[in-house]
Amino acid sequence: MSFKEYQEQRKNSKPQGRGFSSDRKRGGGSGRFSRDKKPFDRDRKPAGEKRFGGDRKFNNDRKGKSAFGNNRREFSKSPVKENLREQFTSIKFPNTYMDIKRRNVDLFTENLTPGITFFGERVFTKNIDGKLVEMRNWDYRRSKLGSAIALKVSQLGISEGSKVLYLGASHGFTPSYVSDMVGKTGFVFCLDFAPRVVRDLYLLCQKRENMVPIIADANKPEDYEDLVPEVDVIFMDIAQREQVDIFLKNFRFLKKGGFALLALKARSVDVTKKPKHIFKMAREKLEKHTEIVDYRELDPYEKDHCFFVCKKE
């Protein structure tokens, strides 16, 4: 085919539907062609539906690619968001920072062990008052304490240098952030019952100077009585049927005026009852013994959970 023939063919054929190169950068889905469509076009297939014939599970070609192409992120940059990115501020809890974005927030704590992370979290250095500080991202969807902070809980009683008894420490995800909060002068006593998770916790505690692992049953405070001193804060996150009773048993370690935090999982108390009902029952029980300072339902982040902040009188 000669060049002239080619040109004629191009003229006769319909336009290819590509648009200008500047449009292409924006990515297909959010570009100008989608704008012509009605906002709720019923003929359009939903994202999850099968579009490619054959054995989809064994067709790896499109794995990991979104239907919008790869340029989506570039398009979402806007001057408004750039301004909001500057809102990286410290909040009322010690060593804790919040990054406010358009729709959600990000939590950060000052890393106590710079250069070492344990759960593959995002880390970067930030200049704060002329000091270089390593920030550790706190994924609050994985942590009940974190989601309480993201839901703007009024007070936790945790300050720099306070001693915290952490019941139900598990692999040590949340305890590591608590240890960031209390700093080098504070201390976190991490308690768990299952040997498998304490194995991970042990290795984590070795690298953090203000943490210690203890294997014990939280239901039997007599067993670890000689291992734990008087503490400022108790945090409990164990999925047990008698959570509230165990919580009240451990008040003996709390000093006067200290705070006790309870993350209650309704489903492990009773699956058949409604969560709201269980929260109400727990509240009535707690009010007999302590003063409830704050209460949150952690619903968008943790399903069927609630969070109590209590104060010992």
Partner: peptide, 18 residues
């Protein structure tokens, strides 16, 4: 001292738990 003692205790319990 307390930290050392705690780690020792926990390690012993972990070893026995298998």
């Amino acid at each position: 001292e307390y930290r050392k003692k705690c780690f020792q205790l926990t390690a012993e319990k972990l070893r026995v738990s298998v």
